[in-house]
Design a protein around this nucleic acid. Structure first.
Lengths: 334, 334
DNA sequence: TTGTACGCGTTATCAC
DNA sequence: GTGATAACGCGTACAA
C-alpha cells in the first residue's frame, strides 16, 4: 500500500542498496546516479520508513525530554529552545513529563523511553530521581539542564552566584531581615534549590546578619505557593523587610499577597525574584535573569554532540545570570 | 547485545509467539503460562523493542502535536493536558513546532511526521496551513484543538460567544467607544481571530454602536504586540474608553502601556482579556476564561478514540467559556 | 492453547 | 560504484 524503497529502486532502475545510499548522501555513489535516484524518489513522493530504518540501523533519530512540568514558564521556555535545535537537526522530540515519584512507579521514564530514543534531556530533576538513576544505569546518553551530577553533561547557571546577586542587592539596600521563599519544605536534593539557599546564606553571613530559620519558607515554585509563603511571613511577629524568592512565579504570588495586605513591593517590602520571567518587567519585579531559552538550546546541542561522538566526555557548561533591578526593590513611595 | 523476545521465550520455555501474546495480554493464552512469561520478562528486565514492534504491527504507538508556539501560556497549558492523556494511554508524544510558513518549506510537518506517528493533534492552526492540508491529503487521523475545519474532529470553545461576553460586559458598563486588540494585521484564516472579531462586531451592532476600523488594531497575540497596540490606541485623537483584547497576554502588554501613560485599568480605561491566564487574577484583569487544559485533554482523547476506531466520524466538541469580572473593568477609583 | 515461519522496510556487509 | 542478501526484533497467519 505505502511506497517502499523497492518501488523507488525499480523505478530508478537500480538496487535498493543504491537507493538507500543515494538518499542518505553516502558519497560512494555516482553523483549522476544519486541525483537520478533523488529525482525519482521525489517524483514518487517517497519518504523512508522511519521505523524500518530504525530497526535496521539501530538508531532511532529521536530524543526525549523529561521534565517535571510543561506549562510553568521556565520549562516551557526551555522546551522552546530544545525544540528549535532538535527540529534543525531533524531529530524527533518526545515529550515526557516525569510524574510525581510518590504516585507513579519508579523509573517510568526509563521503561517508556528504552529503545525509543537515542538520548535524553533531563530538565531540572533531582539527581536522586529514579528516572535519572535508571537512565544512567542504562548508559543512555543524558544531558542535564538546570541541574548537575558527576559524570553527566549539564548546562546550568551558577545558582549560588545568582542567589548572591539577589541577596547582596538587598543587603546593599540596607535590609537586615531578609527572608527566603524556596521550593519544597525540608532540604531536598534539588540542585538549584540547594545552591540558591547556599548563596543566600553566604551573603547573609558575610554581611554579619544571622540567618533566621523562620524567615525561610517553602513556596513550591508556584504562584500559589509564593502567595502562601508571603502570607506566612507577614504573619510573623517580626516580619522581614525584604524577601528573595527562588522563582519569579513565586514572587508573583508574593506580590499578590502583599497587595491583599495593602502593602506595596519596593516601598513596604523589598522583593527579588529569580528567572527573568517575561512578566517580571510588567510587574516591576527586580529579578535575577537567566538565559532560559539558551539553556535549552545549549543542552540540546550538547546531547546531539554526545550522540554523534559517543566517546565525548561529559561537559559542564555554565551560563551567566544578571541582576535586573526594578521597582520592587527600589520604589521609595507607595 | 540487548535482550530480545527470543531470550524471554527460551528462559520461559515457550515460543516467541506465546511471549508476544502473553506480554500484550491477548487473552488466548493460558493464564498460568501468561503469568509465568510475565514474571520471566520482568525478572530479565525485558522491554519489547518499540521499533521492531512498530515495523511488524504497522502502528507506531505515538502521536504528534504540532503547535505554532510552545512557551505561550495557552499552548503550554494545552500541552500539559495533552501530555497527561497520552502518558496515561502509554502513547509517545512527539512535539513539533510548525515553523512560519513563510520561512520554511511547505508541509514540513508532513514529511517529518509521515510513518512516524499514528495521528496528529493540531493546535490552533489556520485551516489553510500547508501542514494541515498535507496531513488531510495523507488521510492521517487528525484532531484540531482551537480551530475547526469541515471533515475534521475538533475541540474548541465558542469564540463568537466568548467575544460577545466580553464586549457585552463593556457595553453594559456604558462604554461607547470599544476598541479591539486582535491578532495579525488584516483578515486571516485563523479561526479564533475571525470568530472573536465577529462576536465583537455583533454586540456593537446590537448595541447600536457603529464599529470604527481605527479602533481595531493587531496585537499578534504577544505581550509586546498588545503593548504596541494599546499605545497606538492611546495616540488616537479620540481614544477608546474600553478595550477588548483577544488574549490575556496581549492584555498584559496593554496594561503596561496604560501604566506607562500613567493610566489605570478600570478607572481610566476598561480592559478585558481572553483566556483565563494564571496571572490575570494577579493583575486584576477581567477576562473570558476558557478551560485550556481540558481542551488539551479532550482533543487528546478524541484522537485516541479515532485511532482505536478508524471509522469514527469527525466530532466537534465545544467547551464553555465564562466571563470573570475583575478590577480592570470595574475599578472606579485610581 | 501453543509453535512455526514468514513478512514488515531498511541498513549494512560482502562480493563483484 | 553497484548489487545481492542477511540481519534488525517483533507480529501474526497458519498449522498443529
Amino acid at each position: 500500500m505505502t511506497l517502499t524503497i523497492r518501488d523507488v529502486a525499480r523505478e530508478a532502475g537500480v538496487s535498493t542498496a543504491t537507493v538507500s545510499r543515494a538518499l542518505r548522501g553516502l558519497g560512494n555513489v555516482d553523483p549522476v546516479t544519486a541525483e537520478h535516484v533523488r529525482r525519482v524518489a521525489d517524483r514518487l513522493d517517497y519518504v523512508v520508513s522511519a521505523t524500518a530504518s530504525r530497526l535496521a540501523s539501530g538508531r532511532t533519530g529521536s530524543v526525549a525530554v523529561v521534565t517535571p512540568a510543561i506549562s510553568r514558564w521556565y520549562f516551557a521556555t526551555l522546551l522552546t529552545g530544545v525544540e528549535r535545535v532538535m527540529q534543525e537537526a531533524d531529530m524527533d522530540l518526545l515529550l515526557h513529563r516525569s510524574a510525581d515519584p510518590k504516585v507513579s512507579s519508579p523509573a517510568l521514564a526509563d521503561r517508556r523511553l528504552r529503545s525509543r530514543v537515542d538520548g535524553v534531556l533531563v530538565l531540572s530533576l533531582p539527581s536522586t530521581s529514579p528516572d535519572v538513576v535508571a537512565l544512567r544505569r542504562r548508559r543512555m546518553p543524558v544531558t542535564l539542564i538546570g541541574s548537575r551530577l558527576a559524570g553527566l553533561s549539564s548546562v546550568t547557571i551558577d545558582d549560588v552566584e545568582g542567589a548572591r546577586l539577589a541577596t547582596q542587592h538587598l543587603v546593599n539596600l540596607g535590609h537586615q531581615r531578609i527572608a527566603l521563599i524556596g521550593g519544597a519544605p525540608g532540604p531536598g536534593p534539588f540542585i538549584p534549590e540547594v545552591s540558591r539557599l547556599e548563596g543566600y546564606l553566604e551573603v547573609l553571613e558575610q554581611a554579619g546578619l544571622k540567618a533566621d530559620a523562620r524567615l525561610q519558607v517553602p513556596g513550591n515554585f508556584t504562584m500559589a505557593g509564593g502567595e502562601a509563603a508571603m502570607n506566612s511571613l507577614l504573619a510573623l511577629r517580626r516580619p522581614p523587610s525584604a524577601v528573595f524568592c527562588m522563582s519569579d512565579e513565586m514572587a508573583f504570588g508574593a506580590l499578590r499577597a502583599l497587595r491583599r495586605h495593602g502593602l506595596t513591593a519596593g516601598a513596604d517590602m523589598a522583593l527579588v525574584g529569580f528567572d527573568g520571567h517575561d512578566m517580571a518587567d510588567l510587574l516591576d519585579l527586580t529579578t535575577v535573569a537567566q538565559p532560559v531559552e539558551e539553556l535549552g538550546e545549549a543542552g540540546a546541542r550538547d546531547l546531539l554532540g554526545r550522540l554523534a561522538d559517543e566517546t565525548a566526555g561529559p561537559v559542564e557548561r555554565i551560563l551567566p545570570t544578571t541582576l535586573v533591578v526594578r521597582g520592587s526593590t527600589t520604589r521609595t513611595t507607595s
